[in-house]
């Protein structure tokens, strides 16, 4: 039922776009433009990210991830997560599958949350861009305030969810 609804929304959306393009309806044309520009920018990154995730899954041993990012890992696990996030490109939509595969390989939840939060706020190319438009002080304040809060909240959330034996849906 939910699937049928979803498919009919997809069909309705694309019918509307097609109709707008034929009859030059401005709203539909603008929406189509938005759709295409975002689709392109994602298709540039997402397939590559999935290939890397695939390679990661077959080559990296579970023990390695468990040791460095797992339940018994030290604070270094958080450092790894932040360093990894600094090199993540795209945005959260790339970080989600990476987080999922890290968790599958045994990384603990608090490290996963730290990685997700950090990949939203401290991607290096993005910070350079940000500081060039809003000033380095702005970027530093944002980074120095948000990063500790991300880590603290990740540890709290991770511990609570682990205690209640929460399991992420497997993919």
């Amino acid at each position: 039922m939910k699937k049928i609804l979803k498919i009919s929304i997809f069909i309705f959306y694309f019918l509307f776009i097609g109709f707008s393009l034929i009859f030059h309806l401005e709203s539909g044309e603008l929406i189509a433009q938005n759709f295409l520009s975002f689709a392109f920018s994602m298709l540039k990154i997402v397939p590559v990210a999935f290939v890397l995730i695939g390679l990661f899954e077959v080559w990296v041993k579970r023990e390695t991830i468990e040791k460095h990012l797992g339940d018994n890992s030290s604070w270094l696990g958080f450092l790894w997560a932040i360093l990894l996030s600094g090199t993540t490109v795209g945005g959260l939509y790339v970080a989600f599958p990476i987080a999922a595969v890290l968790h599958k390989k045994g990384a603990k939840l608090s490290v996963i949350f730290t990685y997700l939060g950090a990949s939203a706020i401290c991607r290096i190319p993005m910070m350079i861009f940000e500081s060039s438009f809003l000033g380095i002080k702005f970027t530093l304040v944002r980074l120095l305030v948000s990063l500790p809060l991300i880590i603290i909240s990740s540890v709290i959330m991770g511990n609570i969810l682990t205690k209640t034996n929460y399991a992420i849906a497997r993919h």
């Binding site: 979803k6 997809f10 994602m42 397939p47 290939v51 695939g54 993919h171």
Partner: peptide
């Protein structure tokens, strides 16, 4: 196997990506 995993994951997530693209547009 890695490439198969990549394709499988990608096709599995496509509907969600499509939903997101529709919403964002």
């Amino acid at each position: 196997k890695a490439l198969k995993i990549a394709i499988k994951k990608f096709s599995k997530i496509m509907p969600a990506f499509l939903t997101m693209l529709i919403l964002i547009s």
